[in-house]
Amino acid sequence: MKKDVKKYLLTAVAAVLLLAFPLLVDNLYIQHSFFMIFLFATIGLGWNLIGGYGAQLSLGHAAFFAVGAYTAVLFVIYQSLTPLIGGLVGVVIAVAVAGLIGYPCFRLRGPYFTLATIAAGEIVRTLLLHFQDFTGGANGIPLPYKGDNFLFLQFSSKAPYYYLALAMFVVVFFLVRYLEHAKMGRYLAAIREDQDAAESLGVQTHKVKMFALLISAAITAACGVLYAFSVSFIDPDSVAGLNLSIEIAVVVIVGGIGTLWGPVIGSVVVIFLTEMTNLYLGDIRSGASLVLYGLLLILVISIRPQGLSSFFRRN
């Protein structure tokens, strides 16, 4: 009983602090960092559905992120369509792409899914580079400024993006928390443990994995939309690169794969370190961040293979 009260009090304090954060800290850089933490925590929660709970390692989630980001941005540019709708179209396309990857791969065992996700990421990136008249190619594409306008997810301050990321995080967190203990989570756990045994109990493993992947892709694409509008500029390397796919996986693996809090803790650590390297090693950034992910992975896996969240677990 007392423990419950303490838990609710802590939650309430955390909620108030998170809501008041942009009022308390007006440094734009720090506000953006917190936006990134919630954004990556959300993507990580989504990635974890298939990569963690389902144990199907994806190294191509940037594909879904990029499809969401580019679709929403291109609809604004060519159709002046609000990203609230354009983003939804992006999510649907990302889900379709996920279906194309999952359908053949989830009937096979072995590394095929991982390989296919890497390929999908590269295909999306290559297509974005190839159709440069339409997408801006390697130069990327800036978002036309439409003034402070919720319909176009454009704001004169950083705070609204922070709140949107926070809201998305909260929704996805509770969705994943629900799914983890629902039928889908139980089936994914069975698949992770022993696929043959799971099938002998009537679990249609390819369907369950597919369902997890589709939800995962949808979440990632939605995050891509929000990201694109918060930075007002996207290019293939930053939203469709293998770097991003790896960063997403590293966030979850470092934090604790297959756990609810893993992506959250992983995001705090990885984003903090990434922003630090950006700050101090800006010139050689892209190389530096990959080295950083590598070192971080080695460190965590050698000390705490279950990820950092296991430090917080009772018993």
Binding site: D196, E199, S200, L201, G202, V203, Q204, T205
Partner: peptide
């Protein structure tokens, strides 16, 4: 049939 369908 695949095992899951036999179980079902």
């Amino acid at each position: 049939l695949e095992p899951a369908m036999v179980a079902r």
